[in-house]
């Protein structure tokens, strides 16, 4: 056991700390883009014109219907071969991962937002329009703030998923927590110790994220939109 702590202290933790930063640099932008995509796509799927709704429904089916690993392979390995004229887009491993996670997360987020939007009574939209608000103003200043509050638990859930599936970035050569852990495990042959600590790192990240989400929920709480029901 002493040996475990010594090894963890001297080898695992310094190695993983380097990967931790990379993971955070993946997770934070991917989840922010994911929420932004989710809110816009969710709102457009409920209030947008028909062709837009159809297109975005297709986007959601595609990204929810294919494995994330396959999507990542596409962004990193296949995209450079997709030529439009003379132009081909080559993404760095980091960007391929961020794009992949954000688009996949956005598809799920849009479902939570859509559910939130549908839970808001239509009458409020009518009232906003009766006051002379444009449809865009009615949605952004009346319906979305309420829908977002209702959707927040689901959106938070999706962010927590994202933290964990960010580990898939390692398969497209990103040296994140999992990537660094795997290299160390390979070179030291101490799989058990390394992956236990890797797991603890993710657990810590998720715990911090849950805590931040709880603060956000509390901050947004107003009468009628409580996070608890008495």
């Amino acid at each position: 056991m002493d040996d475990f702590f010594a090894f963890a202290w001297e080898r695992i933790i310094p190695t993983l700390d380097a990967g931790l930063w990379t993971s955070i640099l993946l997770i934070v932008p991917a989840s922010l883009f994911g929420v932004a995509i989710g809110v816009s796509v969710g709102a457009l799927r409920v209030y947008g014109p028909r062709p837009v709704v159809k297109t975005l429904d297709a986007y959601v089916s595609l990204f929810r219907g294919t494995p994330l690993v396959v999507q990542l392979y596409f962004w990193y390995f296949a995209l450079p071969y997709v030529r439009i004229g003379d132009f081909a887009l080559v993404l760095s491993p980091m960007w391929a991962a961020i794009v992949g996670f954000a688009l996949c997360s956005g598809a799920y987020q849009s479902e939570y937002i859509r559910g939130g939007l549908l839970s808001i009574k239509r009458g409020q939209l009518r009232a906003a329009q009766a006051l002379g608000m444009t449809p865009f103003q009615s949605v952004t200043s009346v319906v979305l703030p309420q829908a977002f509050r209702r959707a927040l638990p689901g959106c938070g859930n999706e962010i927590i998923y994202l933290i964990k599936y960010s580990s898939l970035a390692s398969i497209i050569t990103v040296s994140d927590l999992t990537g660094m852990g795997r290299s160390l495990a390979k070179s030291s042959f101490r799989n058990t110790e390394v992956f236990i600590v890797v797991g603890l790192y993710y657990l810590a990240l998720v715990t911090i994220a849950s805590f931040l989400l709880k603060i956000a929920e509390k901050k947004l709480e107003i009468p009628g939109f409580e996070s608890k029901r008495e």
Binding site: K121, A127, L131, V142
Partner: peptide
């Protein structure tokens, strides 16, 4: 619609806004 006010049977107040903001929001936005 700015010149024609409407009162609904089930009020249709904006649930996420205080009474003051319910009255104020259209004054600012519209």
């Amino acid at each position: 619609r700015q010149q024609v006010g409407m009162i609904f049977q089930d009020f249709n107040l904006f649930d996420h806004l205080s009474a003051l903001d319910n009255v104020r929001v259209a004054l600012v936005k519209v």
